[in-house]
Design a protein around this nucleic acid. Sequence first.
DNA 1: AGGTTTGGAGAATTCTGCAC
DNA 2: GTGCAGAATTCTCCAAACCT
Length: 475
Amino acid sequence: MFLDSSNPSPDILEGQRILLEKRAELGITGQQRPLLDVRLPNAPKIDETKSHLPETAVSPPPAAGRDNARLTGAASQHEAAPFSVGYWQRENAINYLKLRQRQAGIVVKRKANETAVTNLRLPASVKTVVSQAHDPDQRTAVTHETAVRVFPSFAAAVLNNECRINDYIVDVAARLFLVLKTIDANEYDGRGWLSWSEAARLVADKNSPFYLYGRRQLKAILKRGEGAFWHRVNHRHETRIRLVSRARAAAAVGIDRLTGRETAVPLRSILGLIDERTGKTAVDGRARMANFRAAMLAVWHGGRQHEEQKKPISRRKIARVYNVSKYRQRSYAARAGIETRRNITPICSYKKEALTAVRLVDGIPAYKHFDRWGILGPRGAAYVARMLPNTYTPPSFVSQQKRNKTRKANKTLAGLGIMSGLGSGSDKRRVFHRHAKAAAAAAGRNPDRDAYAELTTRVSAGVWKNYQYRQEWQP
DNA sequence: AGGTTTGGAGAATTCTGCAC
DNA sequence: GTGCAGAATTCTCCAAACCT
């Protein structure tokens, strides 16, 4: 079942031999310490341009203490996070690996997507739209539970502080757009043709269930979204609002192609009425706005996962590509009740040489994993393993929709002639597959990428097998 | 021992929503 | 338009856990 650690594979022995050779060449003996001057610079800070909305810090999430404390604590909680390893281990391992590679003069070819991570990929990666038009016969009264359909790409644009319209961050206007669009589609004729007085009655009247803010602010926000989400038109001595299509709204925020599944959230989430953590009603407009953005993060997570499959993604990547700082990610996840789960991939049974060889020869940031609860095998056994990014499970109020709306919207987007191709390249180093068969096939097709599939072991989740890298460990 | 990262707590800062 | 309370966010520091 497991690799017999007293009998390492020829590859590992070979790795060990190369390592020893290199060390002998460099005169490295005995205990080694990291060299001070080769410490890796910190990851580039996200440039979170100041905005009308603070993008900084998070009041400490209310949830219990540190992960590890939680892990070592009550057994009742251990299924939520079955592994005692922390993110730092992976980072440590990466740094250590790089250091040793430099020491040993090993030049590692840079993978394509390790470059140019700081530049804005907004136009390609940002996407959203809401589905439109309803059968008039199926029109229903709008309630707080009415589904608002949002594309994950659009949700990402809402969260992205770099995404602007008329020089304003889009979130406020996008929220109004979603609300008006939903009410229009359900209660009116769905043509996106509202009078100013109607709109004001709906969202600017304190007695309205869809109240967002006063008339004065409504005017300001209409100005913000002018041309992108709607056009204000003078019609028979009255201002009317012509809502654009969801595809055009997506185009306006720089989306060239929608990705992921369209997702629905209840209107109350868009209004930000309820803090899903506590179930309490949010009264303050700021809290409601934060609840809305938390819902957008939930939409994004919900839409990117392929059906029940939850693919890992790192906070760092989310921060990088979508301009959502780690603080906001955690804060929003707590607000919206998004669950996070760690993932690992075991490589072989632990042996010191094996770990070194895996790190240095195979270039894998591996660490020593103690299987405290006997999830991978015997209790307390140690493995050479690698951390994978977290997976996120959106709350139950987020539901995936059928695909056809996305396709239709994409056709429209294509028709609008928006530049496409930015960021669409698949330069991934790691690909997470749904089925082992697909992972194995992909591993054969493309030797440059790691191909993972989640193992269906007696453990409910969190253990992935890499079909590219020859793993000794087997469930 | 000295070094790394993470998450948490509380301080500090930013910025909104609201009332006038 | 303006000022302000206070919510949201970031910053800073610390402990924990682990590595060499």
